[in-house]
Design a protein around this nucleic acid. Sequence first.
DNA 1: ATTTTGTAATCAATGGCATCCACAGCACTC
DNA 2: GAGTGCTGTGGATGCCATTGATTACAAAAT
Lengths: 155, 155
Amino acid sequence: MDAIDYKIIRAVMDNGRITWAELAGLLGLSSPAAADRVRKLEEQGLIKGYTALIDAESAGYGLGALIAVSLERPAHRQAFLELVQKLPEIQECHHTAGDDDYVLKVRCRGTRDLDRIISEELKSLPGIVRTRTTIILGTVKETPNVPLPPSEQAP
Amino acid sequence: MDAIDYKIIRAVMDNGRITWAELAGLLGLSSPAAADRVRKLEEQGLIKGYTALIDAESAGYGLGALIAVSLERPAHRQAFLELVQKLPEIQECHHTAGDDDYVLKVRCRGTRDLDRIISEELKSLPGIVRTRTTIILGTVKETPNVPLPPSEQAP
DNA sequence: ATTTTGTAATCAATGGCATCCACAGCACTC
DNA sequence: GAGTGCTGTGGATGCCATTGATTACAAAAT
């Protein structure tokens, strides 16, 4: 994990479809060397995969919400976590310190979908004490990119 | 935006580096036709870009937090939004209905970074009435993928 | 000090892929 | 029925990814 690896990560976050030749140009290496580096980062799990970023609203998923969930006891946690993995509308699920146990970020087509998720899917689980839903009026910024500093050195 | 486009979106979300030849195979089209379809989706803004998914913890950004921000008046909103765009640690910023005005998701290296963001960056802005920070103990699920239904078939 | 070993790079060759162009099928319009 | 625009196919071309052989260098061992 040296300075070149940082450059690679910044480059592939910026353009996930960059060619090895272009990347090699940025790094000052040959393309096989660049491809080798990337392959190693993938094998280490530092690069988890590649994806296209889709505009949720254009795709018909204009309604976002944050749902804070309080679980009664650890007993029912397993079923909850399985449901979280199962539902594609749940984009994020964070275990949090504070008043609530989990915070979910969901994206759905409209209030009907949201109602189904809260009233049917979540509330049907035995251990859920309460949920607190916050509607997202608009998303100002949304990136999966890790905040690497513009230039960072190896550890 | 027909059934083939849905297949494309699902395919490129699943693998952002898929080749046109592979994609064409999934769609039952020729590769130039597949590439054309994708190009059009990019031009209409439905595909916003491509990125590598990086493991935040491996990259040294193991501390996540949700910060609820209350703004005093719309007068200072502009400066706040500019700061949000500027700080790379802020991965998401949602304008929300409810008690608070905005909810931020941040990723940083440790409490020192978090302190800096809250105490220096945010609190230095004039219009911010209060912030409420929730530490993320662990992330169960985190994907930027839009929740397209698994099968929205072709004719 | 020399050898050994492992890592990481370059170079050259090959096979596959993206890309471009010309042309064909089809629906819609006038 | 001819015109027009959209969408896809097929083939040619040039670039790129990938592989294997080889070299350079650093650290460890004898």
